[in-house]
Amino acid sequence: MAERVAGPEIERLIQLLARLPGLGPRSARRAALHLIRKREELLGPLADALQAAREKILTCTVCGNVDTCDPCTVCGDDRRDRDTLVVVETVADLWALERAAALRARYHVLGGALSPLDGVGPKDLNLASLVDRVEADRVKEVILAVNATVDGQTTAHYITDLLAHLNVKTTRLAHGVPVGGELDYLDEGTLAAAIRSRTDF
Rank of each mutant, 00 (worst) to 15 (best):
G119A: 05
D187E: 10
C75F: 02
V91E: 11
A145N: 11
R79I: 07
P71G: 00
H175T: 11
G189F: 15
I36H: 12
V5G: 03
S129W: 00
V168Y: 01
A164Y: 03
A18M: 12
H108P: 01
D77S: 05
L103A: 14
L130T: 03
L23T: 08
A31P: 07
P71L: 02
T170P: 01
A105E: 10
I14Y: 02
A192W: 13
A6P: 00
E188S: 10
T190V: 15
L191C: 07
H108C: 10
K169N: 15
A192T: 14
V62K: 02
P45Q: 06
N126I: 00
T190C: 12
R80E: 05
D78R: 15
T154D: 05
E3V: 11
V131N: 00
C75G: 02
D184M: 08
A105T: 14
H34Q: 13
G181V: 15
H108R: 09
A156P: 08
Q15D: 13
L13I: 04
C69G: 01
T160L: 11
V5P: 07
G181Q: 10
I195T: 10
Q51I: 08
V150G: 06
T190F: 06
G121Q: 14
V134H: 00
R80G: 02
N167E: 10
A113T: 13
E141S: 03
A101P: 03
E182I: 06
A47L: 09
E89M: 02
C60T: 06
A194H: 05
A49V: 06
R29G: 12
L117Q: 09
R37A: 14
Y158S: 04
P8Q: 08
R106Q: 14
V62M: 03
S27M: 11
A6L: 09
I57K: 02
V131Y: 08
L20C: 14
L163V: 04
I159W: 04
A193W: 04
